[in-house]
């Protein structure tokens, strides 16, 4: 399989002595939909910054589709499209100009740039806004504008640094569909996100970075298989009898109408429901306590020394 991105021994030490990356190795295959996860300050954005030349590396090598950034950075950049975390376009420029200019910077003739701009602005639902100044767009529209801009030169590798941050659920899901589509058409995608549900839903492979080191790098399936237990929250019709002993199921009462249980992976739930029924408790609904990946993420980081309380607090807020 062709390698889209190969990173070897990548290090970054900032002028103040802070080591943001401590020799990471990472390989992303062509056509992959890859998640790069980690808590804030773990080194995700630094890694992306180095790949796309916004940050100078201290050591190691990076190559994009075989183009070593130390040997042929323009060649590597031609393969790349980047959607950064923060809005970085001219707020007073028209939407169409932002996308068309980006095509020009990549060497595309203006006519082709205009054609591509129309194609991607239409696909991302921004064509009607093409003559608006970028600052007039909503947050979600600005995110989509950055995606259109990153795609205008039709890169082979698209890097998205938290592309759906601050985007409402409906729009987020439509963006997921769009990203799935372009991935199916052959674009390799690397995604960093705070929404672990997003990574679980979209990505086939995953790396978790913490304190500048890759602590896990595997397929999403393999990672989720390591999850041995799942936590469920059950809502009950009647009040749960006070003093109900849930220890056989490693559970406890959260409030008078809900209980939490921990179930071994593969274990049947029938026994639990029968037992509850026998206790006069009727379950009306059931849900996962947290996203499965989120649980793994918190566990992994805790194992590696990142404060579990801090990680759990972020996870509880839907962030990692």
């Amino acid at each position: 399989m062709t390698t889209a991105l190969a990173i070897k021994g990548l290090t970054k030490v900032y002028n103040n002595g802070f080591a943001a990356l401590k020799g990471i190795d990472l390989t992303v295959g062509q056509g992959d939909f890859f998640a790069l996860l980690g808590p804030n300050g773990a080194g995700k954005s630094t890694t992306i910054g180095i790949i796309c030349s916004l940050v100078r590396k201290s050591g190691g090598t990076v190559s994009v589709f075989g183009y070593d950034i130390d040997v042929d950075f323009p060649g590597a950049k031609r393969q790349l499209g980047v959607v950064p975390q923060e809005f970085n376009f001219h707020q007073f420029e028209k939407v169409i100009d932002i996308v068309t200019n980006q095509a020009g910077y990549y060497g595309l003739p203006r006519r082709l740039g205009l054609e591509r701009a129309e194609k991607y602005l239409r696909q991302l639902g921004l064509w009607d806004k093409r003559n608006n100044a970028a600052r007039m767009l909503s947050g979600g529209m600005k995110r989509r504008l950055m995606i259109a801009r990153a795609l205008v030169h039709e890169p082979r590798l698209l890097i998205l640094d938290e592309p759906t941050a601050g985007v409402d659920i409906e729009l987020r899901r439509s963006m997921w569909e769009f990203l799935r589509e372009i991935n199916q058409q052959g674009t390799t995608i690397i995604l960093t996100t705070h929404y672990l549900e997003e990574a679980e839903s979209l990505c086939r492979n995953i790396a978790i970075i913490d304190h500048g080191e890759i602590i896990e790098n595997t397929s999403m399936k393999a990672l989720l298989k390591t999850l041995h237990k799942e936590h469920f929250i059950l809502d009950t019709r009647e009040e749960v009898p006070a003093g109900l002993d849930l220890s056989p199921f490693d559970g406890h009462i959260i409030d008078p109408h809900s209980i939490q249980v921990e179930i071994e992976k593969g274990e049947s739930l029938n026994e639990l429901f029968s037992w509850l029924s026998g206790q006069g408790v009727t379950v009306t609904s059931m849900r996962n306590k947290a996203n499965r990946l989120e649980e793994l993420f918190v566990t992994l980081l805790a194992e590696k020394g990142t404060s579990p309380a801090a990680v759990a607090a972020r996870a509880a807020g839907g962030q990692a």
């Binding site: 796309c52 030349s53 916004l54 950075f73 323009p74 060649g75 950049k77 031609r78 790349l80 980047v82 950064p84 923060e86 970085n88 376009f89 001219h90 707020q91 932002i98 200019n101 980006q102 910077y105 990549y106 060497g107 801009r149």
Partner: peptide
């Protein structure tokens, strides 16, 4: 405004 990055990431 950081839109210099548009140019910096390009070849």
């Amino acid at each position: 405004q950081r839109f210099i990055e548009e140019i910096q990431v390009s070849p």
